[in-house]
Each structure stands twice: as C-alpha cells, then as structure tokens.
Design a protein around this nucleic acid. Structure first.
Length: 748
DNA sequence: CGTCACCTTGTTTTT
DNA sequence: CAAGGTGACG
C-alpha cells in the first residue's frame, strides 16, 4: 500500500490521493500521467474507497486501455476485470449490447467503420438518385459525423441554406437506412448511448450510482458529445428531473448549468480527468480543448493540479518544446522542467532532397545502433503517411530492420473485410453494406445491372437487399437467389461450429479461398485469411477468460465488434528489434531514446491544409510539440530543399517551427547543400539528373527570393517568353504566379 | 457480364 | 505517385 505511493512527487501524490471530488489534472508530456491515473485507481481500491465494480476508466485508444489494465494488474492483487476500462467506443458498444432493446437496436447490430460508412452513404445517394458530384460522399460523411459528435440528430440540425437543408435531409435518410439495416457507425455508438441514458431514467440512475469514480485519460481530446456523456454519468444528483434530459432526444442546453451544482451533487460519481491542452491534436475530428475549461468551471474545480516535472527528456529538448509552444495563445499554462540536465544539443539537418534527408537519417540511425541505442528506441516521425516510403526505401537498402505503425490495419484489408462480410451477413441479413460487398465477390454473375435492379426493388419495398432478392425475376433473380441460398446454407452449416471453424468454413465455401488461390498476388491474402482464423481463435480464448461479460455471449457479434473497434496491431516484424516509423499523431503517448522529426518544411509540417482551418497553425504547433517531447536523449530535426510530392518535385522552405526554436539549443549537422553551391553535397540524391540551368530573367528554379508582401519564397517553376513569370512557393502565403515584369523580387 | 486500360483525382491526422 | 472510377471492348 505505501509502496503504491512511494516515489511519487508531491504533485503526483496530491493528485493520486485527492478526496472524492471532481478533479482536473493538467499533466504535461512525460510527467507520469498514466502512472497517476493507474495509481489513483489502485489507491482508491486498496484503501477500500471503491470496489473494482465502481470504477469507470475511459481512454481513446485500445492501446492506452490495455496499458492501463496491465499496470493495474501489476499493482493490485485482485483481478481488475470488474472494472470498466476501455475506449469511449468500446464502452458504448458494451452498453448498447447489454441494453440493445432499450436502445432500439437489434441484438446483432453491426458497427460500420469509416470505410463501411462511406460505402453506405454512396449506396444511399445512388438509391435516392442524388448527384454525388454535388454532394460528395466524403463531405456528407463528415457533415453527418460532425453533427453526431455534437449530439445533434438530423431532426435538430440547423439548415441555414438550401444546400444544407438537402444535406440534413440526407442525414435523416442515412439515419433511417442505418436503422433499417441494424448498423451503427462510430459516432452513433456514442450518440445512441448518450440518448439511451438520457431517456431511460432507471438505467441512467443505475450507472450513475454504480460508477463512483470516472477517470478520463487524454481529456483534451474529448468532443462535445463525449463530454456530455461524461457529465450525464457523473451527475446522479441533478437538482430536478426536469433539469436533466427527459423524454426524447433532448439537446444539451440548460441541463448543464443546473446539473452540477456541487452542493447538490449527492451521490454522483467523481470525474478525475487528466489531460494536456498543449497536446490536443485532434481538433480536426471534433476534439474540443475547451472542454477542459468547461470542466473546470462547470464542475467547480477549485485547484487544478499541474504536473510539470518531466521525467522523460533532457533539458535542451524540454527548452525547445517550451519555447515552441509559447507561441500558442489561450493556453492553460504550464512549463515543463527536469532535473536531468541539459543533455545534447538538438541536431538539425538540411537535405538536398527528401532522398538525401532519408539517407542522412538512416546513416545516423545506424550510428546510433552502433553506439548501443536499441533499434526499438529509435523513432522516425513524419507528418503524413506518404512520407514513410522514402524512409522505408533507405532503411531497406541499408538493411536496417524497421517497423511501420499505422497504415492499413489488419481488419481493413480487403480479404479480411470480405470474409467478415460473410460473417456479418449470416448474423444479420439486413446488413446491406456487407451484402453489397460480397454479393458478387468472388464474381458469380451478378453484375452492376442486377445489383441496381435489386437495390431498386429493395428501395421500393423499403426492405433490405437480402429480403428484396426474392422479388427479382429473370436471370438476375436466379443468380441473386443462388447467392441467398449460399448464405442460408452457410448459416445452417455453421450453426453448430465454434467461431474459428465458422470463419474457416466461410472462407472455403464462399469461394474466397479458391479465388485468392487463383490470384497471382493471392498468397499474402490467403495468409491473412489464415491469420483471421487464428485471430478468432485467440479472441474466443480470451473471451472465455472474461466471463464477466455475459451480455456479450454471441461470439460472432463480439468478434465483429472487436474487428471494427480494434485496429489489430497484427503487423509483421512485431517484437523484433526494429526501428519505429510512424506519424506524429501515432507517436502521441510514446517515448524513445532518439527521435527524428522529418519533413520540417512549410506546407508539409505545418501542413498547408492547416492554413485554411481555424487555429490550424496552432494545432500544427501542438503536433510539433508532441513530436519534440517524444525524445528522451537525442532529437534530430530534418528537412529537405526539394521533395517529391504528387509525382513531381516541390521546392520547400524550412518550417516555421524551426525558427521558433532558440538557436543556442541547436546544432546544424551535415553539409548544408544548396543549388548555388556546385560541389556535390555530402548527401545528394544518387546520380542526380542534370538540372537544366535555365534561368528566366536572372532567376532559376529552386532559388530563394524575397517579395515585399509575401516575404521569403522559393521559385518552383518558371515560364519564359515575352511576359515571363515564375511560380513561387511562399509557404504560409501559398503558391503564387508572379510576372517578372511587375513583381519586385530580390534574390536571397 | 467481366476485364482491362486509361483517365481522373486527390493526397493529414483516426476511434 | 497511387488508387479509385469510368469507359471501351471481348
């Protein structure tokens, strides 16, 4: 017990041993956030203040949830299974499975991942004869999700113009389609649960009374709906029933103020939120940093505890991070410090090209490994996934083992999705998304004409594709009928089998295996299908250990939910001694001895799209802050003068963020090549094509220039002739074509 | 109906 | 540069 609290610093100790009250912990990067969270739970339980039953711990990623569970298992003698620890989506799924009737969902409801959702929307638009040029499916998906994440149903959505009115109608149609098919997208899991708890008072009171302590990780990433959800669960002692949400789908509003008067809170559970506003990097998908301020105000949190001592990084790295983030406005305020000493300077490298940059990084990586850095402790970070290719190429050539995180996940592979679609159809024939996916895969003579006819019939009868199949006549009807019989046969044949056998059977009898056997690229896909069977075996075994979930007795349904909700970090090279490659987003929460942040160029990092978004640059800066604070001992910042992008060479300015770092912390390393310098740079793109020395009016491509209004830029392309003009990348000011006759350009 | 080739198009981050 | 979608052909 006292072991538990040993080695905590005063702030951590204060946070862990807070009396039962709402709390907000402002936890800087590397300040022991997870430790505080788990120790808090362990402390509460071991001091008898709460049973495992009364704990609800919410995270954003499965990895974080698993990590928490693992640490708790190590800290507590008891089995932590009684606690509800999981992601928002995972917990909502669990709740909805348990109360599917009350939530208005079939027991076997399926979860649409983003790809499924997109295809469902495309299908909807086709059915309704909506022009998908005018209403792009991706945009519509975003529109719908954004509304759901605010807790707004189509019925309440505001339509301020004709275009939006139509989108709201489509939102409503989409809701209806999902309901008919018995499917729920990611946002729906949350919204449904929220509405369920709003509407159903006994249920709400039950969970409110049960969860004495609600702990939230990465609170800065919560969206509006998630915050509402938390408030609902934490507010058992509402002042009056009328103040809380009552019948139907009430929209936030006045419930919030009355909900939380602390003197009347009665027996409501306590929220213990841990977050860092400086690490909020998911605003683009609805995360609302403002929730931290709102929590502080609405839950009357008197003293926010700040964890500012960093146990991860050396001083120079922290100084750089602090200097960078100071450029953001409206922070809650926090300054990381360490007693670990300044450490090494931050190395900055400028490459001639992206290839040059990658080569430098890989050379350094090899040196680090020679110096005894474990490969798994070396991370190569980048802003966007596309950047990994060049790095991978260099690593591969150099024979350095590496592992790429992110990218396509196991359960997103087409062959896996196909196999699972059969499983879904057996469980729920109304799942049109699954139906459409495999009705003609492998091909069985049901072409687009037949599918269209079927969709029309289904639309007329307001039924699922599956049920409409019988009404089709002619040749198409026969073919579709055969498919239906296939599904029915599969269902009958697999009824008595355990899940892995079911999947194995489906793969064989659906024709998937035969199909991929005949494909030249099919071997890997077949291996993945086998892997899917293994995954199911492992899953079932795991489930058997966890009989704490009687509500999830349907193995197929829970496996499907698992497949949708969990990325499945089944990746080759796992556990090997490999260098780690990932996006900065994916690196959040991780730490490494040595970190390379690559592609530090205007337009890439900060990304050009961020310029259009509100506070976009600040979010990019927070992203950079996250990246910098991943490093323990050594940090490299690299950028390149030219980069292949969209199949053509782009000329790049170095990132604004590099300029925001104090020069005294930096050390430029490697040669500083430039187009002007003729000697071959230390790292140059192998046999470089001879660059045409074409100059236009004294300017050449790749040259840096100064413009009175737009500042510093790089000439990207040029046109000669009578009215010669050049295209210049001005970074933050964008790309401009300027006529040399008029523009006042000064060579730099 | 199925396949292949060409064209367009869009390229940030993800539970 | 890649993937996804469309159009022409077999």
């Amino acid at each position: 017990m006292s072991d538990l609290l040993a080695n905590l610093n005063p702030e951590q100790l204060a946070a862990v041993t807070l009396p039962p009250q709402h709390a907000l912990i402002l936890a800087g990067a590397g300040s022991g956030k997870t430790r505080v969270l788990t120790t808090r739970i362990a402390w509460l339980i071991s001091t008898g203040q709460v049973g495992p039953h009364g704990v609800l711990a919410v995270t954003f990623t499965n990895k974080a949830a698993k990590e928490m569970l693992a640490r708790l298992s190590a800290m507590l003698p008891i089995n932590p299974r009684g606690m509800w620890i999981g992601t928002f989506h995972g917990l909502c799924n669990r709740l909805l499975r348990a109360h599917h009737r009350e939530a208005g969902l079939p027991a076997t409801f399926q979860i649409l991942d983003s790809a499924d959702q997109l295809s469902a929307i495309k299908r909807l638009l086709k059915n309704l004869n909506v022009d998908d040029e005018k209403y792009p499916p991706r945009e519509l998906a975003h529109f719908i999700n954004a509304h759901k994440e605010q807790g707004i149903r189509a019925a309440q959505a505001e339509a301020y113009d004709d275009y939006t009115r139509r989108r709201v109608e489509l939102y409503a149609e989409y809701e209806a389609q999902c309901q008919r098919e018995g499917v729920a997208d990611f946002a729906e899991l949350l919204l449904r649960t929220y509405e369920l708890l709003c509407r159903n008072e006994p249920l709400r009171r039950h969970y409110q009374a049960r969860f004495r302590h609600i702990l939230v990780d990465e609170f800065q990433d919560t969206n509006v709906l998630q915050y509402k959800w938390l408030k609902l669960l934490a507010s058992y002692g509402e002042r009056s029933p009328a103040a809380g949400p009552s019948q139907g789908r009430t929209e936030g509003g006045d419930d919030e103020k009355t909900l939380l008067a602390s003197d009347e809170r009665g027996e409501g559970g306590c929220i213990f939120a841990v977050g860092d506003d400086d690490q909020s990097i998911y605003a683009f998908r609805g995360a609302e940093v403002g929730n931290m301020r709102d929590l502080e105000r609405e839950f009357r949190i008197a003293n926010v505890i700040r964890l500012e001592q960093n146990y991860r990084s050396h001083g120079n790295i922290l100084d750089a991070a602090n200097a960078l983030i100071k450029n953001n406005r409206g922070r809650l305020g926090k300054n990381l410090w360490t007693d670990a000493g300044a450490g090494e300077p931050i190395r900055v490298f400028e490459g001639f090209s992206d290839i040059d940059e990658a080569r430098f990084a890989v050379d350094e990586v090899r040196e680090l490994i020679r110096d005894g850095f474990p490969p798994t402790q070396i991370a190569l970070l980048y802003r966007s996934n596309a950047q990994s290719r060049v790095l991978e190429h260099q690593l591969f050539s150099a024979g350095v083992p590496y592992r790429v995180h992110g990218g396509l996940r196991f359960f997103d592979r087409q062959e896996v999705k196909h196999a699972l679609a059969y499983l879904r159809l057996i469980a729920n024939p109304d799942d049109d998304t699954a139906f459409a996916r495999v009705v003609n895969f492998p091909t069985r003579g049901i072409g687009s004409r037949s599918v269209e006819a079927l969709q029309e019939a289904a639309h007329r009868a307001n039924s699922s594709l599956y049920n409409a199949a019988a009404s089709l006549t002619g040749k198409a009807g026969a073919a579709v009928g055969q498919f239906i019989r296939l599904i029915e046969t599969l269902r009958a044949e697999t009824a008595a089998l355990v899940l892995p056998e079911v999947i194995e059977h489906l793969i064989d009898r659906s024709g998937l295996r035969a199909y991929y056997l005949g494909e030249k690229e099919g071997r890997e896909r077949l291996e993945n299908l086998d892997e899917l069977v293994s995954a199911a075996t492992a899953f079932v075994q795991e489930e058997e250990g966890t009989l704490a979930h009687p509500e999830e007795s349907d193995a197929a349904a829970s496996f499907l939910a698992h497949a949708s909700l969990e990325a499945g970090e089944h990746q080759a090279g796992e556990g090997q001694e490999a260098v780690q490659l990932m996006t900065v987003h994916a690196a959040k929460g991780l730490e490494f001895d040595a970190v390379f942040i690559t592609g530090l160029e205007q337009g890439l990092f900060p990304h050009e799209n961020s310029a259009q978004e509100r506070d976009g640059l600040e979010e990019e800066r927070r992203l950079m802050y996250v990246a910098v604070t991943r490093a323990r001992r050594r940090l490299y910042l690299t950028h390149a003068q030219t980069r292949m992008l969209h199949g053509q060479t782009r000329y790049c300015l170095s990132s604004l963020f590099l300029e925001e770092l104090p020069e005294e912390l930096l050390r430029r390393v490697g040669a500083t090549p430039s187009f002007a310098a003729s000697p071959a740079p230390a790292y140059s793109a192998a046999p470089t094509r001879q660059r045409e020395a074409s100059t236009v009016g004294g300017f050449r491509i790749g040259q840096s220039v100064q413009h009175a209004k737009f500042g510093l830029g790089v000439i990207v392309s040029a046109e000669g002739g009578a009215d010669a003009r050049v295209q210049i990348n001005f970074g933050a000011h964008g790309m401009k074509w300027l006529a040399l006759a008029y523009a006042k350009l000064t060579p730099v």
